[in-house]
Design a protein around this nucleic acid. Structure first.
Lengths: 146, 146
DNA sequence: ATTACTGCAAAGGATTTGCATGTGA
DNA sequence: TCACATGCAAATCCTTTGCAGTAAT
């Protein structure tokens, strides 16, 4: 997780926006999540370092980061989760039973998008999808149980 | 849209649930949407025929139908949309500019899921995805404009 | 000196819940 | 009959907004 720290300040200021302590702290708190992290988790981490940051600022700042593509978000069964944007798009396979989540790169997904392009003309550009199903372990259990 | 009408009553009663006038009207109202339709649209259609049906019942009934797989739902930019479940899974390509939505069948998507299975062991079983991007027309416009 | 950003508190909107009543099987 | 389902209204949850004050550039 170092790629973004190199130039996020520049990327923010380049567009005429300001780098504030709140923005730095929030970006750190998203980073600390490692992978997917919810608003509440981020807010919890922030409380320890900067109790004064308001939820309103957190919401506004996460939207702001998403627009600048410093952060990506996804909807996972009704919950919005956030994650630091990498250098390249990536996606996730998520187990609906145990919540296990693995990271997959864009390649296989892009192949599908290319087929959509060829067959239907639509240019799909989703860069952070969450695919839900069963992980190998939960699938084994389910198979035995039913 | 006739496939479901053949046996939805049976499918409901088989599980020990009851077929009420409200459930029939709501299922009709989802059907009339043709494709994706929101809670508000469904509620609007219902008002004309059965003004007394409450929003609470509508929410409860749609959840109920989703559990029985009579209806499928999807999240499209923050909005939950509903649609009658077909005999086979299907998905959508949706234009983020003009909202145009096309129906695609499951085959290409299943190929991707099969690769996920082979490479990562995860069994993905999403049966109603929405892929967003640009339709051919909006892509042409965007290409010219920028 | 500007004007973007923040905090607070209130507003807003969507969805859920408790409970008494009604009704399908 | 009797458990399931409904309607109403209130409650709850999440997110957004207005505005006055603060701070980055």
């Amino acid at each position: 997780m170092t790629h973004h720290t190199l130039d996020y300040a520049r990327r923010i200021r380049e567009q005429g926006y300001r780098l504030t302590p709140q923005r730095e702290l929030i970006l750190d708190a998203v980073c600390e999540g490692g992978g997917h992290t919810t608003i509440d988790e981020i807010y919890g981490r922030l409380q320890k370092k900067a109790p004064a940051i308001s939820l309103a600022t957190l919401y506004r700042t996460l939207d702001f980061f998403c627009e600048l593509h410093l952060v990506v978000s996804a909807e996972i069964d009704g919950q919005t989760v956030y994650e630091i944007a990498g250098l390249t798009p990536h996606h996730h396979l998520i187990c609906r039973e145990c919540g296990a989540s693995i990271h997959i790169d864009h390649e296989l997904v892009q192949e599908l998008f290319d087929k959509f392009q060829a067959e239907y003309g639509y240019t799909i550009d989703m860069d952070h999808m969450a695919f839900t199903g069963l992980c190998p372990a939960c699938r084994a259990k389910a198979g035995a149980g039913e």
